[in-house]
Design a protein around this nucleic acid. Structure first.
Lengths: 331, 331
DNA sequence: CGATGGATTTAAAGCGCTTTAAGCTCCTGT
DNA sequence: ACAGGAGCTTAAAGCGCTTTAAATCCATCG
């Protein structure tokens, strides 16, 4: 029961050499139609499947992409899904390595290196620019989701400020003029969004108001409470991410503030959270598929096309309008 | 830059054979203290790391566990994390294979087989009992999270009914007596919970009331609306999972029904959702670490200890009391 | 009719590591 | 002094596949 058929078994059954079988099964040119047929029949008879480990070893090229992720992060989940699909398409296999309690980032990356991945795709890594640069000297690296100063690391990231821009345009077009921003705290991502907010408000000739926050629901609840405690409600709130926005909305609901009747709310990330029917949050979508595609493409172009210069792909997010935004009451 | 050192390089540098290096690096007995030292020094000098692919191939035993998961499922994420940790501990490596849009369950499983995993751990698979049984004939399989009738598949699952029991005990002890259950629809898991509810209510001499639902927030919202529309509110609601519970609470909040002031709510799964500060939902915890541990143990006992009979591990969940439950108003 | 060359096929050499069996050195015991 | 071991070390044979270089076949050509 333990013995899966080997390449040699298929070869014997088809009456050809293992080399021919290998070629046929991988669809390489060479073997004649007749050989092809016999091999395929034999393989089917034995329900043969190649041993990936052996293939990987024998190929000089490994055709393996390593992906570092935090399996608990829903956005990573979305990205991984797309990376898999894109890699498949490009003829690469994917090895996933996740952070766990006992496995920090360096450890998870070593695992990928031990599999001799030809390139790494790192989802929102914590490593410093320096460390990433050092890593990139060993193997092509693509970082998704945050800027990296390193000279050798490819980057794919959304234009955070543009996303906020879109959100504000939407609100302003609806007629809003008192728009508060709930901040996401330290970090390059939050900074980009904050900058986008300030810029767009200035451009529109409106007064910016930034409340502190931290990308968690609790932060949102705190900010929401602060907002309802003020004498004058803003007409709209833009949050630095969806979790914050959900927290804000929760505080509003509990205080009897109607969304979007009294205040409109916009989130950022277009997470599954935002899409839930009872939340139905207008949010900025980062286009995970496009990010994944770009990342795989960056890796592949290093490997297959021999690109050596650095690329930074900045993707333009777009607003997904849902039920949490409406014209302001007075309008 | 591309050439990572090989075993042979370390051997050459240490002035010993590759066999010795292999033994030393894996901590096998044999080599003398002096050899050990020289090898380790050489390996460190070259910052050598073994090629996993080659090791895997050369070892007759692969020491590889394949895990099938849906990377988008947060509970799977928790399980994976623990499986990794446990596998590490047992000296096994883990390959993750996730469902995606283009990769259905059979396909994802094939990938695992192609890596020649020695055993598979399947997280809540959709495959029929028959298919699972067929698979188990090829390779030891452990299914987590649902019962399987197949004769050869090991199962690790929580005792759903016991969890609901705990929830009801908690509520009854608090003094509740009108306790409505929001159902999770078809499926073995939901059925177990429903059964637990009915049994516990009967035992307590209370009248069971089951509202239809489907394990989503929307289902919860619908159920919640139905509840508030009734003339007499129940004193407590038990939902078949956390998402339902969150939906119910959302409907309550919007209708001005205070939780837990007027109605207590209990969820099931103790998901990250339940733990959010502003939700703070009393819920039943399934102990992901224990499930993962049992699953790995089941796999390993087949592989290393040669177990051939089937095991079914039923874990007892426990209630995590949070802020969504309190004594009923009248009490 | 042998030479020429394109189309197929295949023997054999790896890929980088593990493992087995044999080889060596140095003691022990008689 | 020599058989028998104990303790290390290593040559060499894989693991199951890919790939390269050489062999084979056959139709075409001068």
């Amino acid at each position: 029961m333990d013995q899966r058929p080997r390449l040699a078994d298929v070869a014997a059954r088809a009456g050809v050499s293992t080399a021919s079988v290998s070629l046929v099964l991988r669809g390489e040119p060479g073997p004649s139609a007749e050989t092809r047929e016999r091999v395929l029949a034999a393989a089917a008879d034995l329900s043969y499947r190649a041993d990936r480990t052996a293939s990987l070893l024998a190929r000089r090229r490994r055709h393996l992409l390593g992906v570092l992720l935090d399996v608990r992060n829903p956005f990573h989940a979305e990205l991984v899904e797309e990376v898999q699909i894109e890699a498949d398409r490009a003829g690469y296999e994917v090895v996933l390595s996740t952070l766990t309690r006992d496995r920090d980032e360096p450890r998870a990356i070593e695992t990928l290196l031990d599999f001799r991945c030809e390139a790494l795709i790192l989802l929102g890594p914590d490593a410093s620019d320096d460390e990433l640069d050092k890593l990139a000297a060993q193997v092509p690296c693509v970082v998704i989701g945050r800027p990296v100063a390193g000279a050798a690391v490819d980057v794919v990231r959304p234009a955070e400020d543009v996303g906020v821009d879109a959100a504000l345009n939407h609100l302003i077009t609806l007629g809003h003029d008192r728009i508060t921003f709930v901040d996401g705290g330290r970090g390059a991502v939050a900074a980009g969004r904050r900058r986008g907010y300030r810029r767009a408000m200035r451009r529109a000739g409106l007064v910016a108001e930034v409340l502190p926050g931290d990308h968690t629901e609790e932060g949102g609840v705190r900010a929401g409470r602060r907002i309802v405690a003020e004498h004058v409600l803003p007409t709209a709130v833009v949050a630095s991410n969806d979790r914050l926005a959900v927290g804000v909305m929760d505080a509003f609901v509990r205080a009897g503030v109607d969304v979007p009747g009294q205040v409109s709310v916009v989130g950022y990330d277009d997470s599954t959270l935002a899409r839930l029917a009872h939340i139905d949050l207008t949010s900025v979508n980062q286009d995970a598929p496009a990010q994944a595609r770009s990342a795989v493409e960056a890796a592949v172009s290093r490997l297959d096309a021999g690109r050596t210069f650095r690329t930074e792909t900045v993707l333009v997010p777009h607003l997904v309008v849902r039920g949490s935004t409406a014209p302001p009451r007075s309008a």
